[in-house]
Design a protein around this nucleic acid. Structure first.
Lengths: 199, 199
DNA sequence: CGCTTAATTTTGACACTGTCAAGATTGTCG
DNA sequence: CGACAATCTTGACAGTGTCAAAATTAAGCG
């Protein structure tokens, strides 16, 4: 058994443990003391790796955005398929990410994070690429005729992202409860967003 | 100055004070003790009117749903205007409610409320009418040709509500920060949702 | 009026939380 | 080896939700 001091990867172990805790008990079930206890370290040890509880949460959020960006950009990288199918895939992957990681997803878009004065620069740097990649893709889809040209790319991005986000939240917050209907809802959403003029 | 005991409207005064507190400090800034202190009563007095902090929050949520239902049904009651205008009005009023009452709106759709075992029957009774009224209206709009008939009313309701909800949350959670763009976003959202076939 | 009873509020207490200050332990580098 | 910085611990404080028991008041009934 190695010594408790300087075991080197405490920061990562804290993050890992924090993730499993919020997956089981939600964000409000995460206390720094229980977390430290579970990792086998004293109550205030985490404070040498995170200034705050808030900073720990930000680290979880950053990981979440990286994962989401990774999963969505995989979809965007597939060039060889039908455009509508690709769009549908993006929607599905996004919703699936949210439903599979509800607590992290909630944190990623929570007011706790984004309305605090200290939205770290690091956080912007992981969140923005996720959004800007989507904006760029919307522009492409517009050029390809999949999405309408009657609306500005930015507005269309905001509105369609809003739709994904809204459905995701209504699902993970327990307002939309039929898990079976997710697929149908995604299908309907995609149909609504597609440019009807070319059909 | 009347006595502190039995001042009769403590319950309502608690709710009222709680509302102003969360409007100023957010939901996480609301503690039962400070609330009691502010109302001029001892720390545990609220527990004779609300079993829980959770139950107090549920009361705020119920008020919120009543207010939202009231404001949206006003729009639905106006029969004499253009259908697209009415739809747009609904969207605007909904978003405006969320932006004007961000903390209450967040509570109304929070997992804290809907994923707790005790989603009171009373809560369902105020939340459902708000939703079912919208479902009914979507059906009507479909019959009138404003919305497409290619999708089921339920799915179209869920998806369009999801869009409103998503945009609302991205606004009040500080992800969409341009307040000026709200109107343009609503316009774009409505355009996307309208049935293009008849244009 | 007075007595009983229920409704309401208070005081005291407990476990839990985030966080700070001061001290203890360990690795690192000259 | 010795100084220094990094890391961890112990002790402490204010604040939280909530329960139990006691105190206070209102209401109903003779």
């Amino acid at each position: 058994m190695k010594s408790a001091y300087h075991h080197g990867d405490l920061r990562e172990q804290l993050i890992e443990s924090a993730l499993t805790i919020i997956q089981e008990s939600g964000v409000e079930g995460l206390s720094l003391r229980k977390l430290a206890l579970q990792v086998g370290v004293s109550r205030t040890a985490p404070y040498h790796h995170f200034k705050d509880k808030h900073e720990l949460l930000c680290a979880l959020v950053a990981l979440g955005f990286n994962k989401l960006t990774e999963q969505t950009s995989e979809v965007l990288a597939e060039h060889k398929q039908d455009l509508a199918v690709q769009f549908r895939r993006y929607f599905d992957v996004y919703i699936d990410f949210a439903v599979s990681n509800p607590e992290v997803y909630e944190l990623m878009f929570s007011r706790l994070i984004w309305k605090s004065e200290q939205v770290s620069e690091q956080l912007h740097q992981v969140a923005y690429p996720c959004f800007t990649a989507y904006v760029a893709q919307v522009k492409t889809w517009q050029k390809q005729g999949l999405l309408t040209h009657d609306e500005s790319s930015l507005r269309l991005t905001q509105v369609s992202w809003g739709m994904m986000h809204g459905i995701a939240r209504l699902l993970i917050d327990g307002i939309y409860v039929e898990e079976k209907a997710i697929s149908e809802m995604c299908a309907c959403a995609v149909n609504v967003l597609l440019n009807k003029a070319v059909q």
